[in-house]
């Protein structure tokens, strides 16, 4: 059974069909890529999955449960966390405060108790700070702990946003272009972080990503959207060579000389270096999911203390 099931989801804005009968599956522990040119409807699909937009037809399921009509915060409560293209952080507050805010669902006291300053809330608040610190340590961001969000650079904020999503204690993370604003080296590092997240915390990831080397390196499976339709799907290495995908990214003409375009830089204009780009090595013992047997996840299921602590609150 898939963790996330998207079945024939259609979303229309007036006369424009942003998603047409999109069907995709994300299995437990997988890292799945969602690629496609600008305007293909990737973010719209995220908004449909998280419930920001009501869908016109179709079905969204999570852990075998139909969540199509659920509200965004209810879906978040089930364990669907997401990042945003324009940063899902609370402006005007510090990094630490953001991580505490993100722990909203695991904050155990009621709103009234908090407002009245019941003694137990002070202890609960200290716990939240401790957990935020653990997450900062895990994501290597401790140095930014007391900085105000508005003062930090976009690249750093992207990482803080990821930390905030982790703080919501998600089972499935939807990442909207996590590598945007990062240098190539930094996005390699991001790849390591994502793989580490799965191994140590045990999350499943569905990510929109333009940086093809990153997709090829970390994704087990890739879906390609184009003009709201699912163009193709498959393991990243096959997708990379798929003539239609290349055509979608580079325009129709490119399809003919596709044999020159097999290198991973068939990305958009941004990737500066060409052809023989060396991909960083995968961590030892890493087995891509759909390529191998789908059964038991190889990595150790031991959850990092940083997030397992409050798991029971759900």
């Amino acid at each position: 059974m898939s963790l996330l099931e998207v079945r024939e989801v259609t979303k229309r804005f007036g006369g424009i069909t942003a998603n047409a009968d999109v069907t995709l599956d994300v299995g437990e522990w997988e890292i799945v890529g969602l690629i496609g040119p600008n305007g293909a409807g990737k973010t719209t699909l995220f908004n449909c999955i998280t419930g920001v937009y009501p869908i016109n037809s179709g079905r969204v399921g999570f852990r075998g449960r139909d969540i199509t009509t659920m509200k965004t915060h209810e879906r978040a409560g089930l364990g669907i966390g997401r990042s945003f293209q324009n940063l899902g952080l609370v402006r005007g507050t510090t990094v630490l405060q953001n991580l505490i805010t993100a722990q909203h669902m695991t904050t155990e006291y009621s709103v009234l108790e908090g407002v009245l300053g019941v003694p137990a809330t002070f202890t609960a608040e200290r716990e939240l700070v401790k957990r935020a610190d653990r997450i900062l340590e895990f994501t290597n961001l401790t140095g930014f702990r007391n900085d105000v969000i508005d003062d930090l650079s976009y690249g750093v904020l992207k990482n803080i946003e990821l930390a905030a999503v982790l703080a919501t204690d998600p089972q499935l993370i939807l990442l909207d272009e996590p590598s945007s604003g990062l240098s190539p080296t930094e996005s390699d590092e991001l790849g390591n972080v994502l793989l580490r997240l799965r191994e140590e915390i045990g999350v499943t990831i569905l990510m929109i990503e333009h940086h093809v080397p990153l997709v090829v390196r970390v994704c087990d499976y890739v879906y390609v959207l184009n003009f709201g339709n699912l163009l193709t799907e498959g393991p990243p290495h096959e997708i990379q060579k798929h003539p239609e995908v290349i055509a979608a990214y580079l325009g129709g003409a490119a399809a003919s000389d596709s044999d020159d375009e097999e290198s991973p830089d068939s990305d958009d204009e941004e990737s500066p270096d060409s052809d023989d780009e060396e991909l960083p090595a995968l961590p030892p013992g890493y087995v891509p999911f759909r390529a191998g047997p789908r059964a038991a996840p190889t990595p150790k299921l031991k959850k990092k203390t940083s997030t397992s602590k409050k798991k029971g609150a759900r």
Partner: peptide, 17 residues
């Protein structure tokens, strides 16, 4: 904190549950 998140961005607030 929920109010501040709400002010900053409603979708983000909802994604925090």
């Amino acid at each position: 904190r929920a109010l501040l998140a709400l002010k900053s961005n409603e979708n983000v607030a909802a994604s925090f549950g």
